[in-house]
């Protein structure tokens, strides 16, 4: 099997110059998008336009913290997008939890659950920072630098396992068989760990960070 590669040449150039985004507006990042889109900063001059559905989108924008419940919807949306697709995380909430670092119902590190191509750090990033991040994304896509969806496919089991740690993936996954198997394994492991856990450990189990990132 040949390894999938991100588009280059004419395809890569067209992909970079025409990014249709699905902005998943959770949290306060949503408020930074209107100034970026309207007359002062005008994102459309780079060919970036908001789209209504994931079927038409190339770019998934996570603008802020994600609760466990929202994460399901985000993953569902991401899996519906046609390839090549890119994910951009907005603000410190997607990097390490930000001000929600000790919240019981938000996820802290988004790249455990979805393959992030680019982070735009800040709390919240100003429109200038957003434009700067998008420019880097466009240049990178033209050179074939970003390959998030390929990583997601190759390490599907890793991502699904992490997702299963915080939510029920059985109804929400495209690969139903794999999801069912991983879900059962994770449940078994959780039960075992819970039996010998102290109160301190229970807290950590709410979101367990697995050992080692994918190669």
């Amino acid at each position: 099997m040949t390894k999938a590669k991100p588009p280059k040449g004419l395809k890569g150039w067209a992909q970079g110059r025409s990014l249709w985004m699905l902005h998943f507006c959770t949290g306060c990042g949503a408020i930074e998008m209107p100034p970026t889109m309207t007359s002062r900063y005008d994102m459309e001059r780079f060919g970036i336009t908001p789209m209504a559905t994931p079927r038409q989108a190339d770019l998934l924008l996570i603008t802020g913290y994600l609760t466990v419940k929202t994460l399901k919807r985000v993953i569902r949306s991401y899996e519906q997008m046609p390839e090549p697709k890119y994910v951009v995380g907005f603000g410190s909430c997607t990097v390490n939890g930000g001000m929600y670092w000790d919240s019981y119902n938000t996820i802290k590190r988004l790249d455990l659950y979805l393959p992030i191509d680019l982070y735009i750090a800040g709390c919240m990033p100003r429109p200038e920072a957003i434009i700067d991040g998008f420019t880097e994304l466009i240049e990178g896509i033209k050179k074939g630098k970003f390959d998030g969806w390929i990583r997601y496919k190759e390490n599907l089991e890793y991502y699904k396992r992490n997702q299963a740690m915080v939510m029920d993936i059985r109804k929400w996954s495209l690969d139903a068989e794999l999801a069912e198997r991983i879900w059962n394994e994770v449940q078994e492991e959780r039960r075992k760990r819970f039996e010998r856990a102290t109160v301190k450990h229970v807290y950590e189990l709410a979101e367990r960070i697995p050992e080692g990132l994918p190669k």
Binding site: L10, A14, Q15, R17, S18, G47, D58, P82, P84
Partner: peptide, 10 residues
């Protein structure tokens, strides 16, 4: 550009 991109989607 949009049309070229849309036809190159997988």
């Amino acid at each position: 550009i949009d049309v070229i991109k849309l036809f190159s989607k997988k």
